[in-house]
Write a protein that binds this DNA or RNA. Structure first.
Lengths: 333, 333
DNA sequence: CTGTTAGCGCCTTCAG
DNA sequence: CTGAAGGCGCTAACAG
């Protein structure tokens, strides 16, 4: 059962395909009467224009690509959700590309670009692909939601170093002097280094307060509660242990929290813990954390992209956005 | 900077477009020498075939649609991840449709189908759209990962009623006689009723054990920790309270857990709690729960779909899959 | 205002 | 084995 085509509609309405196309695209002037007649036929036949044909002739794909590593992590899900929120009803579909390695990133990107697969791209945290974009399709609208400023594309970011500093300062403000750090790997195949930056900010704060940064208390593992749990477990069992832990993410923080609870440490009396991100779960877990606008930032990115697509250009004031950070004091500090 | 087309490749290789097309599709016989020459040019030009053109002429979109309500819930993210896992590298892209209401579902579906947007569909939990599919595109390959058996399409499900029963029986086995139930709404606009079924299984178990099912202990709210937290909070403060709570999902269970902790109830001595789903977070939260193969089930669905697409038909033994359930005893019962 | 026509880039016969 | 030609469904430019 073939779907009806624009020609079927035209014939049935007794007009030419051009006219149908016009009402479809709302563009030109069509006599109201004709327009109504065509609309009726469209309705009757349950017609909607074939996307591929539309793409091929119009040059527009009506799809936005989202490239993301680790899209199952709560922080990425939040961002995805923000993007989906604005795409929904915009006429654009969302194609999700999940990436795990640098090589995969390049391959995918090459493919997407040369295939003319999308009208625009939202790239989550992968700042290291400008080269690829520039060589294959330099003027494809793309927004980067990244960990660090980028050269050629509009970006949306937070100041990770500042965030690490904020977290440490918060602990210091609560009179902690023995402060550790637990995070995920500082180096990895995708050149993600939010953790490194947050850790640097952490060190800055300690230095400025004249506090020592104890190497044995700064632990790095993989991005998972399990990993944080194990590191914290070991750390807490030492004679000499910190009274406060700054973490690189809420996920890690929950692992630390679990370890502390398991050892019957009271929180925050025996050990204070602060997270980073403020994922939805943080609120109910009563986790004190550094809030970053995950959903909002992604939403903003999607809005910028859509207006870029609509206007054909992006205003300068949307090229570099640094979102505010905020400490959310709950019950773990 | 226009991407190179098949014609560019043909010209540069000194052959006709037909030949290029042949090597692109691996299909026909091309002299090895010619083939190598063409491959080299393709490489050199960084050419890859335009998707839209390919779709239009070939009738294949090389994209799979995934339709999901609430895709940010951990259980859906897990399934998405399972799907992405098999699609990755298969040549198919994943378009994500997030749906919130029945009306939206119908509108989207209509669009997707008449637009010829996808080669196949994986529909998460939304069993109530067979009609739509049948009328607009009865032979589009579609797999349903659902809450209850479906008529016209291959489906993958678990026995929710059985799951509810298992959970209750687990409590009974641990000598509980005062058992409550906390879940999300039993009726909703998308006709999702896993909770209702789980609750029925719960009732079955109580009945069979000769235990009363106390109405005041069976509470239903929205699908969120907050909601569960509030209901549990109220419940636990009553004189007369259950010693065990069966929940409709891990998410709800964590809300209940939080409420219990907040009231200094010991777990599982004062109150035992069992979840449902076994989302990743359950393991680290040490939550006892009913495990369902979220990732695996979705992975299976995607595999079935791809082979359907490849073979042109789906074997009978893949049309009705009921996945096993399993109690994971951890520390909350 | 509206019908007609020429592509968009690729795949698929159909001759050679 | 390989080049040429038609058509997929739609948009856009051009006549009327």
């Amino acid at each position: 059962m073939r779907s009806p085509t624009i020609r079927d509609v035209a014939r049935r309405a007794g007009v030419g395909v051009g006219t149908v196309s016009r009402v479809l695209n709302g563009s030109a002037m069509v006599r109201e009467e004709t327009r109504q007649r065509i609309l009726a036929v469209i309705q009757e036949l349950g017609f909607s224009p074939n996307l591929a044909a539309r793409q091929l002739s119009g040059g527009k794909t009506w799809t936005i690509g989202v490239i993301s590593p680790y899209f199952t992590y709560p922080s990425f899900v939040e961002r995805l959700s923000g993007i989906q929120h604005v795409l929904d009803g915009s006429g654009y579909d969302l194609v999700l590309y999940s990436i795990r390695t640098q090589e995969q990133l390049e391959r995918r990107l090459h493919q997407i670009l040369t295939q003319n697969r999308v009208d625009g791209l939202i790239i989550l945290t992968l700042g290291n692909c400008e080269q690829e974009l520039q060589t294959y399709k330099p003027d494809l609208p793309a927004i980067m939601i990244v960990e660090d400023a980028v050269q050629q594309y509009p970006y949306i970011m937070i100041d990770n170093r500042e965030g690490g500093r904020l977290a440490a300062e918060h602990m210091i403000q609560y009179d902690h002097t023995l402060i550790g750090f637990i995070g995920d790997e500082r180096e990895n195949s995708l050149h993600l280094y939010a953790t490194r930056q947050r850790f640097e900010g952490f060190q800055d704060a300690l230095n400025e307060a004249g506090l020592p940064c104890v190497d044995e208390w700064c632990l790095f593992g993989t991005h998972s509660q399990q990993s944080a749990y194990q590191m914290a477990q070991a750390l807490f069992q030492q004679e000499d242990r910190p009274t406060a832990i700054v973490t690189s993410s809420d996920t890690m923080a929950f692992g630390v929290l679990a370890a502390a609870r398991n050892l019957r440490l009271r929180i925050p009396q025996d050990v204070a813990i602060i997270g980073f991100d403020d994922i939805p779960h943080a609120a109910i877990g009563r986790l004190t954390t550094v809030h970053q606008p995950l959903f909002e930032g992604a939403k903003l990115g999607a809005e910028y992209l859509l207006s870029w697509l609509a206007e054909g250009s992006i205003p300068d004031d949307q090229r570099a956005t640094v979102l505010p950070l905020e400490i959310i004091q709950r019950e773990t500090v």
